[in-house]
Design a protein around this nucleic acid. Structure first.
Lengths: 187, 187
DNA sequence: GTCTATAGAAAGATAGAC
DNA sequence: GTCTATCTTTCTATAGAC
């Protein structure tokens, strides 16, 4: 019966991939369970064989979105980009548009404040992982580093991207991203 | 007939005050027109005598929320707080909780990305006003100042508050706010 | 301009067949 | 486990009386 469990696991992962994709694009409220299941190639009714609620799916999707990309950011991975490359992409107009990659920390920041503890714990856990990665990167480059400075870097990246996405003015958004990038290079 | 128009204007302002209060607290989706009208002491049906849609209300409420508090932040107002006082409150746990005051730039940042141009224009306009206020404050203190630095300050305030609100860990949130505050003092 | 009543649509969750 | 069908609730927006 192991292959049956494997199949269930695979289906669940497929649902999670679709959920991560759609939720980071549109947030919690504008994505229906129907949309997620359709994207995964299934129908509504099958959803509750895998998850207890939409909220549970959302929490797991945030983690999944972070894991999908966290590996690429891990400085122990030899294929991981340098911190400079990471920041350059993170604060790019391409990331702002979000066609290929959408960091849940920036794309869902204020969305999270309206959700239950399960979801907020997931977000908090992803943020802590982000701090860890930043710390490893910065220590490798600069030796020991102030924890306050790490948090400032995180805010400049996440906050800069989030605000730039809210602006309906591409020129201003671009200036904003460049300004944030500059701050990180100057230190 | 002038008193009638005055009455309509007053009612409209009352609706806008309620909308600003509720939308900044809960975002667009979790506030119904019914909630807003009830808070304003009216019923659903009366809404469309004042606004064409929920989206239009949202856009105007963002402006209203900014105006309500923008006067206090205007450095030409002798009762306005100093920049240090402003930053200290902005990046406080009290503001994070949002009981008495909620800056729409931080509380609604990612919410805005899902809305129409009317709403996004309103947000962008408020953000530009925020930059102007910051510029005036910083010039008064430090003389001419780099535009990039002003944007960094804005991101550190808005982004720091927004991210801290998403975290389900009060200690971490407090550290984050303090770290952002420190960055602004160091320059 | 404000009210009550309601139309019409969307979405979360469940039931039961296969 | 997955499907179709349905229950139930919620919400925007409109209609018509006063």
């Amino acid at each position: 019966m192991a292959w049956k469990e494997q199949h269930k696991h695979n289906t669940r992962q497929k649902i999670l991939r679709s959920a991560a994709k759609l939720f980071t694009k549109q947030g919690f409220d504008y994505v229906g369970i129907n949309d997620v299941m359709k994207d995964a190639g299934l129908t509504r009714g099958a959803f509750y064989a895998h998850f207890n609620s939409k909220s549970e799916l959302y929490a797991e999707a945030i983690i999944a979105a972070a894991i999908q990309t966290g590996d690429q950011l891990n400085p122990d991975n030899p294929k991981a980009p340098s911190l400079d490359q990471l920041v350059q992409f993170y604060l790019s107009m391409e990331h702002r548009q979000g066609k290929h990659f959408r960091c849940p920390l920036a794309f869902l920041a204020t969305d999270i404040t309206q959700r239950d503890d399960q979801v907020r714990d997931a977000y908090t856990s992803v943020f802590k992982g982000f701090l860890k990665h930043l710390t490893a990167h910065l220590q490798r480059r600069n030796g020991d580093i102030d924890r306050a400075r790490i948090m400032q870097v995180a805010v400049m990246m996440i906050g800069g991207l989030a605000v730039s996405r809210a602006l309906n003015d591409d020129e201003l958004a671009k200036n904003l991203l460049t300004s944030c990038h500059k701050n990180l290079l100057d230190h």
